[in-house]
Each structure stands twice: as structure tokens, then as C-alpha cells.
């Protein structure tokens, strides 16, 4: 475990260096971006000094790293606010969206996958396959637009800008997150359905199922007590990957639904060459990804105690 943490930390350090260097090569200047078409030399000079942009590159990186050790990620050039504050204000939205999407993926994907396995070789099963195929193929932002047009504009169930900050009540907040979560999770659900279905069908053909059947065990017991547990290992792996793709997938969806999350902040930060903010967000995303994989390992252990022995 200790080794893993060290590797994670090194990966993280490498990520920050790459972003830092990468930013030097992409065109665009944060100060010019900020002052736009009406330049003012006085303001320009103030901003350059204020954000330390007049210092050499290595010095800026080391200073940033030093501040990070004190959990200070600097000030956003675009927004004139501490990076920590900006991220803290938006992180709950992104986390809520990701968690809700993930719950949808698991809550809908696994039962529907079992259903699909049961329906295998029927007409309904073919229809199921077709739907999940569309689900995987359709881009999330496009699906989001269709959802908005149907649910908000035609049926008028929720407003287009349904987002409400959590401070104004948990249920209004949840309501605002539901449609975006459906949009984010649609492809995840489809992938999960297919995996669960295939995994179960495969298990159902194995010898121990045949043995159980011959012993006269009820088919429901076989499925839920034996097959599902064994089928879960590959499913958990895929769910872990889906979680990471949900976190990154929400970047686009947040903008479509005007949700102030990390994703829309990241887009704004990159568009304006706001290095401190971009770095800060990447630090957070790295932490989330590292944490997600750690969680995945723990879940493996819970499902299959044998995995613990390998450590």
C-alpha cells in the first residue's frame, strides 16, 4: 500500500510539471485575455506583477509547489479570487453530479443488465441490445440537448436552468442535478448493462451452474446467490472506469446545463490561460481519480476476499 501511495504522489507531481510546461507552449496570455480589446498598460503591468508572471518559469513552479505544500493554490487570474475558494464553491456540484450519475449507473445498469441476461435470445432482448448500442454511441452533450428539449421544453417538467445551489435546499438542488445526471450516466448505464449481461451469460454456462441445476437448485437462487457474486468482479472494474469517465464527462454536461462545477471552471480556466486555476483543478481531479482507484481496490477485497492475499 505504501508503494502505491508513493507512486500516486509521483504521478501527481509529474502531472503538475506536465501541465506547467504544456502551458508555456500553448498560445495565449492570461493577462492579455483578461484585458481584452481595450488594453491599458498600467493595468497590464499591475496584473503581471500581481500574479508573478514577470518571474522566470522554474521560480514560478517552485513557488507554486511551495504554496501547495501549505495547501495554498494561489489566485485565479481570470476571477481575481483564491483558487481554493473557487474550487470549494464548485466542487460540491461536480461531486454531487458524479455521485448521482454513478448511483444511476449502478442502480439502473446492474438490474437492467440482469434483466437483459434473462431476456437473452428473445425479441425484447434484441430491442434491449439496440437501445444500449445507441446509448454507447450517442454523445452525452447531444443526448443532453435532446433531454432538455423533451423534458424541459415539451413536457415542461423541469426548467432548462434547473440548477439551484445546495444552500437553497437539498431537494431543489437534487432536482436540478437529475437531468444532467441522466445525461452523464446514459452511456455508463448502457455499458454496464452490456457488461453485466455478458458476464452473467458467461457464468451461467460454467460448470458449477450446471452442477447446481442438476442438484435441483432453483434458477433464481443460482442467479442471485452464486452467479451474481462471481460476475461482479469484472463489473466492479468497469464501474471504476466508468466513474472516472463520469468525472471527465461531466465537464461538457455542466456547461450544457449551466451548472457551476469544476468542469465549466476548467474550460473557463484553459480558455483564458489561467494557469493557477487550471493547475488547481487538475490537482483536484488527480486526487479524485487516485481516490476512485483506491476505493475500487477496497471494493474488490470486499467482494472477493482472496484478492487481499495477493497484497
Amino acid at each position: 500500500m505504501g508503494k502505491r501511495i508513493i507512486y500516486s504522489f509521483l504521478t501527481f507531481l509529474l502531472v503538475t510539471i506536465i501541465i506547467f510546461i504544456f502551458f508555456q507552449f500553448i498560445p495565449g496570455d492570461p493577462v492579455l485575455s483578461k484585458i481584452g480589446l481595450e488594453p491599458d498598460p498600467a493595468l497590464e503591468a499591475i496584473l503581471r506583477a500581481e500574479f508573478g508572471l514577470d518571474r522566470p518559469l522554474p521560480e514560478r513552479y517552485l513557488r507554486w509547489l511551495g504554496n501547495l505544500a501549505r495547501l495554498d493554490m494561489g489566485t485565479s487570474i481570470r476571477f481575481n479570487q483564491p483558487v481554493n475558494k473557487l474550487i470549494a464553491a464548485r466542487l460540491p456540484n461536480t461531486v454531487a453530479l458524479a455521485v448521482l450519475s454513478f448511483i444511476l449507473v449502478a442502480a439502473a445498469g446492474i438490474p437492467l443488465g440482469i434483466l437483459a441476461a434473462k431476456l437473452n435470445d428473445t425479441k425484447a432482448g434484441t430491442l434491449f441490445n439496440a437501445i444500449t448500442q445507441i446509448g454507447i454511441a450517442i454523445p452525452a452533450f447531444f443526448f443532453a440537448m435532446i433531454l432538455i428539449i423533451i423534458v424541459s421544453i415539451k413536457l415542461k417538467l423541469v426548467p432548462v436552468t434547473a440548477y439551484v445551489p445546495m444552500s437553497k435546499g437539498f431537494f431543489p438542488f437534487l432536482r436540478g442535478m437529475l437531468l444532467p445526471a441522466i445525461a452523464v450516466s446514459f452511456s455508463g448505464i448502457s455499458i454496464t448493462v452490456r457488461y453485466v449481461r455478458n458476464s452473467i451469460i458467461e457464468e451461467l454456462e460454467s460448470n458449477y451452474v450446471l452442477a447446481a441445476k442438476n442438484k435441483g437448485v432453483k434458477s433464481g437462487d443460482i442467479l442471485y446467490k452464486h452467479v451474481l457474486r462471481n460476475a461482479m468482479i469484472p463489473i466492479v472494474t468497469i464501474l471504476g472506469m466508468i466513474f472516472v469517465s463520469i468525472v471527465t464527462g461531466s465537464i461538457v454536461i455542466e456547461t450544457v446545463f449551466s451548472i457551476p462545477g469544476i468542469g465549466s471552471l476548467l474550460i473557463a480556466a484553459i480558455k483564458t490561460s489561467d494557469l493557477p486555476l487550471t493547475q488547481g483543478i487538475c490537482v483536484y481531479i488527480s486526487i479524485v481519480v487516485i481516490f476512485a482507484y483506491l476505493l475500487l481496490d477496497i471494493i474488490y477485497m470486499l467482494i472477493d476476499p482472496r484478492i487481499r492475499l495477493k497484497e
Binding site: I148, S152, K156, P159, V160, V256, S258
Partner: peptide, 18 residues
């Protein structure tokens, strides 16, 4: 004042009279 970074989202909200 509501910010719509995505113009399409803004137009949808507009046509929904939000």
C-alpha cells in the same frame, strides 16, 4: 443575471421563458 457559457443552453432557457 444568469451566465450562459453555452449560447444554446441560453437560447433553450429563453424559449422556455426562464
Amino acid at each position: 443575471i444568469k451566465i450562459f457559457a453555452d449560447l444554446n443552453a441560453g437560447v433553450l432557457a429563453l424559449s422556455n421563458r426562464e
